[in-house]
Computed example of a mutant assay.
Amino acid sequence: MTDPVEPGTVRPGGRTARVRAAVLRAAGDALAEGGIAQLDLADVARRADVGKTTVYRRWGTVANLVTDLLLDMAEQSLPRADTGTLLGDLTANAQLVQRTLTDQRQGALFKAIIAAATGDTRTAQALRRFYDTRINEWAPCVEQAVARGELPADTDPQEVIRAVSAPLYYRFLVTGEDLDNAAADRAANAAVAAARAGTYRRNTTNASHT
């Protein structure tokens, strides 16, 4: 059997792109319905109305399929907001996370992928790449806030963006508390307040001794 293509190394077009889209949609549906334990390449092929040999040849393993699914999710995610203020931008970010996690399909899908990442190195690496992509997409809104003088010059943009989504994922995965608009707004406001106070400065250790 031909070795499967490494996910992310090919940008398919035409029929190949349609097949990939159908397979990834089917994989996402299967994950949302049954979790990683129930994900089966033959079942995904059936759901996508694609030949089993096509799926096995292109992806080869469940880990490869999940990796490609995460790559596609990162590529298809909505671009960051640009409201002109840090609070506006981070509120938009928090509301996007909140909507995604409370969506019936997307929420179940993320839970399945996160669960899979705890036991599979490749899935964990793909999940980190997904979040790195999203964090880097939103980091410029913090950089713009620094340029406007809203934040200390040495603020770490990635840390600010992580601070927005962290409490939302905590509610989603750990406490089960309501993940509503108010929770999203609080997360954004808390991140802005902490950033303005210098909590996310890269040189906090040195700054505390000056």
Rank of each mutant, 00 (worst) to 15 (best):
R46I: 00
I135P: 01
A147E: 15
T155S: 08
L87Q: 13
T102I: 04
E159Q: 15
L39Q: 10
G119W: 00
F110L: 11
T123Y: 14
T121Y: 07
V160A: 09
Q106D: 11
L151N: 12
L86K: 04
V146T: 08
E150I: 03
R201L: 03
I36M: 06
G60S: 09
R11W: 14
I161S: 05
A30G: 07
L65Y: 04
R196G: 13
F130A: 02
L127E: 06
F130Y: 14
Q95K: 12
R20V: 12
T2G: 09
L179W: 05
R171L: 00
T205Q: 06
L151V: 13
S208C: 08
T53P: 01
A21Y: 00
R128Q: 14
Y169P: 01
A94Y: 03
T175V: 06
G14M: 05
R128E: 12
G84L: 11
P167R: 04
L179G: 01
G14T: 08
L31Y: 04
A184Q: 01
D49H: 09
A126E: 02
A147P: 02
D178G: 09
L87H: 15
D180A: 02
R201T: 10
T210Y: 09
V5T: 15
G107L: 02
D103H: 09
L109G: 02
T175F: 11
A92V: 06
E159R: 15
T210D: 15
R171G: 00
R128P: 00
I135Y: 08
A21E: 03
L168Q: 03
R134W: 11
P140I: 04
T133Q: 10
A187H: 04
A108V: 06
D40T: 14
L101R: 09
Q38Y: 08
W138S: 03
E6F: 03
Y169C: 03
E6V: 15
G149R: 08
A182V: 02
A147T: 09
V174K: 12
Q95A: 08
A117R: 07
D72P: 05
A27W: 01
R11D: 15
A191F: 09
V62H: 07
D68H: 00
Q106V: 01
A108N: 15
I113E: 07
A92T: 05
D43T: 14
Q106R: 12
A32V: 07
D3Y: 05
Q125N: 13
R47H: 01
I161A: 07
R47Q: 06
Y200T: 02
V97E: 09
T121D: 14
I114Y: 07
N206H: 13
R128L: 12
L90W: 08
D40A: 13
P79T: 10
V160Q: 08
A17H: 09
L109M: 12
R15N: 10
V5D: 13
A27E: 01
G119M: 00
T53N: 11
V5H: 13
V23W: 03
E143L: 11
P152N: 13
A197Q: 10
I135V: 14
V97K: 05
A112K: 08
R186A: 13
M1V: 15
V19W: 05
T118I: 05
E143D: 14
G119T: 02
A112M: 05
L71C: 04
D3H: 10
A193F: 01
R162S: 11
R162I: 10
L31W: 02
T123C: 15
R171F: 00
L86N: 04
T155K: 06
S208Y: 04
D154G: 00
N203W: 07
V19E: 12
